[in-house]
């Protein structure tokens, strides 16, 4: 099997430096540290009285899920927004596009390398969930769904990141743009819905904007809570009963991600139509 040489090179470079291992170490330190604090505070509150360990396990799982989602969502822009722009900055871009690698090969190789780091982080965090299983209240299926949610969010957000990386030639601009976009998708859509919800007296006509919010994917894990919230927000106006809101969100985001990858590949092509300068 022929592995994309760019992917092989990127992985070699990433794994050769201390940065990747430092990232995994810090990631686990933050995740494990907060999990320990959460467990300790719960234990202290309960004192010596009866404690429902399965409820504790469930709460710990939800806490870890949200924390891990936040960490990954924070890491992805930093990992992906420099993928193409850094090639411009260190003047290796011309040499790269002068090879037999197609623009799509370049984008795919870079994206896969960045996602492999995210995959490594998720994989490295799995032993922490062993502790959750020890307490009970969570099934392996739910853990599988959580991993799928994290991967989906990472793939979608990475596609936006690499697109911005190809649009901005300066890595700093690409990183800033990427974080602004991430914040807009998570916080901006929530904020707008919050505002319209109060303006329109317990109804938000902008609820479809939430399709862009990656947090919607958690409906897969907690369908009832999410559906109640959606019904409340939309006054039951969501039209498709046979297709969950999160499923529509995945479809919409996949379409946007595909468009982003297309733009990135188009921008990487030095002979693209309509290019103004060289």
């Amino acid at each position: 099997m022929n592995i994309n040489p760019l992917l092989a090179k990127e992985l070699r470079l990433r794994m050769r430096t201390w940065r990747s291992f430092g990232t995994v170490f810090l990631y686990l330190l933050v995740l494990g540290g907060f999990a320990l604090l959460f467990f300790a505070s719960f234990h202290l509150r309960a004192g010596w009285s009866y404690m429902d360990l399965s409820q504790l396990g469930r709460n710990l799982f939800n806490f870890l899920a949200m924390l891990q989602f936040a960490l990954i969502f924070f890491l992805v822009p930093g990992l992906t927004a420099t993928l193409i722009s850094s090639e411009h900055e260190r003047q290796t871009f011309d040499l790269l596009v002068c090879t037999q690698l197609t623009p799509f090969n370049i984008v795919a190789g870079k994206l896969t390398a960045a996602l492999s780091v995210i995959f490594l982080l998720i994989l490295a965090s799995l032993p922490l969930y062993g502790f959750v299983f020890l307490l009970g209240g969570v099934s392996p299926g739910e853990l599988a769904v959580l991993i799928a949610i994290l991967l989906l969010a990472a793939v979608i957000n990475s596609s936006f990141g690499i697109m911005l990386s190809s649009v901005f030639r300066k890595p700093a601009a690409a990183v800033i743009g990427s974080y602004v976009l991430s914040l807009a998708l998570v916080g901006g859509t929530l904020l707008l819905n919050g505002l319209t919800y109060s303006l329109f007296h317990n109804y938000s006509p902008l609820y479809p904007l939430l399709l862009l919010n990656p947090l919607v994917l958690f409906e897969w894990l907690h369908p009832q809570i999410a559906r109640d919230a959606l019904n409340h927000l939309s006054r039951g106006a969501y039209p498709w009963r046979w297709l969950s809101f999160w499923q529509v969100s995945v479809l919409v985001n996949f379409a946007l991600a595909a468009a982003s990858l297309y733009i990135a590949a188009w921008k990487v092509n030095p002979l693209r139509a309509g290019k103004k300068s060289g």
């Binding site: 470079l13 050769r16 430096t17 260190r90 003047q91 290796t92 040499l95 002068c98």
Partner: peptide
């Protein structure tokens, strides 16, 4: 092709 200004992947 060898450009006038070029970079290398220093960690390789």
């Amino acid at each position: 092709y060898m450009p006038d200004f070029f970079g290398l992947y220093d960690d390789l």
